[in-house]
C-alpha cells in the first residue's frame, strides 16, 4: 500500500523532472542549432535571459528522483545503476559540463570564451537527456535485472535508442514552446514566430517517434505495450495525444499562457502513461513495486518528507515563477558591479 504511494510519488517526480529539466535541456538544444554568432545572436540572447533566474531550479527535481529511488526502492536503485552504468555515468558527466558551461559563460566577455562555454553547454544539453532516456528505455524493456552486469546491449538496443531520441525531441519541443512564450514577455514577436515554428517541428518529431516507439515496444517490451493499450495506461496515452493536438493548434497563433500548459501536459501524461503501463513492476517483469520497496517505516517517513516538500517547495517555486513572469528578476549588470563616482553616491 505505502509502497504503491511512494511509487506514484516517484513517477510524479520523474514527470516533473521530465517537464522542468526537459525545458532546460531544450533551451540548450536550440542554443546548439541557432547558427553562427550573428544569425544566432537573437535566439541566444533570449535563451540566456529566459533561462537565468528560473530554469536552473528545474534541475533540482533530479536530486529528488535519485533520493526517492535509493531510499524508497534501494534494490531497484542498485539494479538500475549496475546495469545502466555507462549511460548514467555519461549523463552525470553531461550534467557537470552543462551546468558549468551555462554558469561560466555569463561572466565571460570575450567571444572566444563564450563560444567555448556555450558549445560545452549546448552539446551536453543534447547528450544528457539522450543517455537518461536510454537508461529509462532499458528499464521499460526489462533489461535491468538482478543478474545483468553493465553490458552494452542493456542500453544499446532499439527501445533504449528510441527512448533516448524521444527524450531529445521532447526536450526540444518543451524548450521551444517555453521560449516562444518567453519571447512575448521580452517583447520579441519575431522570436515568438521563430520558436513556434521550431516547436511545431519538434512536436511532429515527438509524435512520430512516440508512434514508432509504441510499435517497437510491441515486440521488445510487451508488458509495457499491453499496459499502454489497455486501461489507465491507455487513458493517459489518449490524454497525451489530445494534449499534442491542442499544443499543435495553439502553436498556430501567437503564444499565450496555454501552450506551455499543454506542452507540459504532453510530457507529463506520457511519463505517467509509461509508469501506469509498468504496473505492478518497477522493472517489467522481474521486480515488482512491493519486492523492490524498502522498509515500511522508511516509506512512511519518505511520504511525510515528500508532504513537507510539497508544502514548502511548491509555494516557493510558484513565488519564484510569479516574480519572474512579473519582470521582478533581472541579472546584475556591469554597471551595478562598478563603483559609483564619489560625486553621485548611490
Amino acid at each position: 500500500m505505502i509502497a504503491g504511494v511512494v511509487a506514484v510519488v516517484l513517477l510524479l517526480v520523474i514527470a516533473a523532472y521530465a517537464s522542468g529539466g526537459g525545458t532546460d535541456y531544450g533551451a540548450g538544444f536550440w542554443d546548439l542549432t541557432a547558427g553562427g554568432a550573428e544569425r544566432g545572436s537573437r535566439p541566444r540572447w533570449l535563451i540566456d535571459h529566459a533561462m537565468e533566474p528560473v530554469w536552473e531550479v528545474n534541475n533540482v527535481w533530479l536530486i529528488f528522483v535519485l533520493v526517492i529511488m535509493w531510499t524508497g526502492f534501494p534494490v531497484f536503485f542498485q539494479q538500475v545503476f549496475v546495469t545502466m552504468w555507462l549511460p548514467l555515468a555519461l549523463a552525470a558527466v553531461g550534467i557537470v559540463l552543462r551546468g558549468a558551461g551555462f554558469a561560466l559563460r555569463r561572466p565571460v566577455r570575450r567571444l572566444a570564451g563564450r563560444r567555448l562555454y556555450g558549445a560545452v553547454f549546448a552539446v551536453s544539453s543534447l547528450l544528457t537527456p539522450f543517455f537518461l532516456g536510454a537508461a529509462a528505455g532499458g528499464v521499460a524493456s526489462g533489461r535491468v535485472t538482478a543478474t545483468t552486469t553493465a553490458s552494452t546491449d542493456a542500453w544499446a538496443n532499439l527501445t533504449s535508442l528510441l527512448f533516448g531520441l524521444l527524450a531529445i525531441a521532447t526536450t526540444a519541443m518543451l524548450g521551444a514552446v517555453f521560449l516562444a512564450a518567453d519571447a512575448r514577455r521580452f517583447d520579441a514577436p519575431d522570436l515568438d514566430r521563430y520558436f513556434r515554428r521550431r516547436a511545431f517541428g519538434a512536436l511532429a518529431a515527438v509524435a512520430v517517434l512516440a508512434v514508432v516507439t509504441l510499435f517497437v515496444t510491441h515486440g521488445d517490451a510487451h508488458h509495457v505495450w499491453h499496459g499502454l493499450t489497455h486501461g489507465v495506461g491507455l487513458l493517459f496515452v489518449i490524454v497525451a495525444a489530445l494534449a499534442t493536438l491542442t499544443t499543435a493548434w495553439l502553436l498556430t497563433r501567437p503564444s499565450g499562457a496555454w501552450s506551455r500548459v499543454t506542452a507540459v501536459g504532453v510530457v507529463a501524461a506520457s511519463v505517467i502513461a509509461w509508469g501506469m503501463a509498468q504496473r505492478p513492476y518497477l522493472v517489467p517483469t522481474s521486480l515488482t513495486v512491493s519486492e523492490g520497496a524498502g522498509a515500511p517505516t522508511t516509506l512512511r517517513w519518505l511520504a511525510l518528507v515528500t508532504l513537507v516538500a510539497v508544502v514548502l517547495v511548491v509555494p516557493a517555486v510558484a513565488f519564484l515563477y510569479w516574480l519572474d513572469t512579473h519582470g521582478e528578476l533581472e541579472g546584475l549588470t556591469d554597471t551595478d558591479l562598478r563603483q559609483g563616482p564619489p560625486t553621485t553616491p548611490r
Binding site: 533540482v60 536530486i63 529528488f64 533520493v67 526517492i68 535509493w70 531510499t71 524508497g72 534501494p74 534494490v75 536503485f77 542498485q78 539494479q79 545503476f81 524498502g294 522498509a295 522508511t298 516509506l299 517517513w301 519518505l302 518528507v305 515528500t306 513537507v308 516538500a309 514548502l312 517547495v313
Partner: peptide
C-alpha cells in the same frame, strides 16, 4: 551499499533534497 542500506539511512537525503 545503497541496495542494502538505502532505506535505512537515505531519509536524511530526503530532507537535504527539499
Amino acid at each position: 551499499m545503497m541496495g542494502r542500506w538505502g532505506d535505512v539511512f537515505g531519509i536524511g537525503f530526503g530532507v537535504e533534497a527539499w
